[in-house]
């Protein structure tokens, strides 16, 4: 290290002021750049709301999409998203939490476990569009589920499963060993310990991770386009086998049209989408805050 042998500062005393000025400048630059990032968030939100707010009314929420911008709404997209996300939650949460519980509490710490861990973190890095293609090949074509809600929900579940597993494992890991040891000492089996002590203790962390994973699923567009969620749907899905559209798909459809009005409609849809996401994030934060148990 240069500092240790002094070679970096041959004229230490002479340039002291210069060095301090440099440090000051550097810290100012770093802070400036950070606030630039935050400002970008502000610009983005401002741009969206200045475009979209005037379209945001009850009619927008309760109308089907239309060729005429002033008649168009997001009813089918909103309902589709609600269907989709409930189904994804139903499929992905039990499997994800079970996997995390198994890996952390029940399986040993052998090589196999490490391989699975590596595998899951790689799955988390696979681009969402690849999941879309797999969904197209396996669910839409292979299992002949067509362009249905089930196909979309299964694809989306595969996509967020690694996220749920990783978040749940972190939460389970943070439960101190002493809790487990106490349970074991009283004669509980590993499963009883996991079910009665570890799971309740890591509950809030798991819930937070799950909500964040679901909010990722709400915003994902590419996999749904791949499995062929329709861009124009003027009916509401009535069962899991119906075709559907979703909020991000509707937004994509409107943004990709050349007319200004549709861009503004897209902005309206974005406001609704961001509001839903913000709500979920707030719930996650509140849960974390309210139920956080501190172990010493």
């Amino acid at each position: 290290m240069n500092i240790l042998n002094g070679s970096a500062y041959p004229n230490n005393g002479v340039h002291l002021n210069k060095r301090h000025r440099k440090a000051k400048l550097f810290s100012m630059l770093c802070s400036l750049v950070t606030w630039l990032g935050v400002a970008l968030l502000g610009v983005l939100l401002y741009q969206v709301s200045s475009d979209g707010f005037k379209w945001l009314d009850l009619q927008f929420l309760t109308s089907f999409p239309s060729r005429f911008p002033y008649k168009a709404g997001i009813k089918s997209a909103l309902v589709g998203t609600l269907w989709l996300i409930s189904m994804v939650a139903f499929i992905a949460i039990p499997i994800g939490v079970a996997t995390a519980l198994y890996l952390e509490e029940l399986s040993g710490q052998g090589r196999m476990n490490r391989l699975i861990e590596l595998n899951i973190s790689n799955l988390a890095g696979v681009p969402s569009i690849v999941y879309g293609i797999i969904g197209l090949a396996v669910f839409v074509r292979g299992l002949a589920l067509e362009r249905s809600l089930v196909a979309g929900a299964l694809t989306m579940s595969l996509l967020i499963l690694p996220v749920i597993i990783i978040a749940s494992r972190e939460a389970i890991k943070s439960v101190p060993m002493s809790i487990r040891h106490a349970a074991f000492a009283l004669g509980a089996t590993r499963l009883q310990t996991a079910r009665d002590h570890v799971l309740p203790a890591s509950y809030s962390g798991i819930l937070t991770g799950v909500i964040l994973a679901l909010s990722r699923a709400i915003g994902e567009t590419a996999p749904l386009i791949m499995i062929g969620a329709l861009t124009y749907v003027a009916f509401l899905p009535e069962g899991p086998m119906d075709s559907f559209t979703a909020l991000p798909i509707q937004i994509y459809n409107w943004v990709s049209r050349p007319q200004q009005e549709f861009h503004q409609l897209a902005a309206g849809g974005i406001i609704v989408l961001l509001a839903v996401l913000l709500m979920m994030n707030t719930i996650a934060i509140v849960i974390r805050y309210k139920t956080e148990r501190k172990y010493k």
Binding site: G37, L40, L41, V43, L44, Q47, V48, D51, L212, S215, R216, I218, G219, E220, T221, A222, P248, I251, Y252, V255, H263, A266, A267, I270, L273, L274, L277, N281
Partner: peptide, 16 residues
Amino acid sequence: LAGIPTVVYGYFALTF
């Protein structure tokens, strides 16, 4: 900022 869906960024690129 990291949690904003990517389609929103697409909109931002095109309109801003």
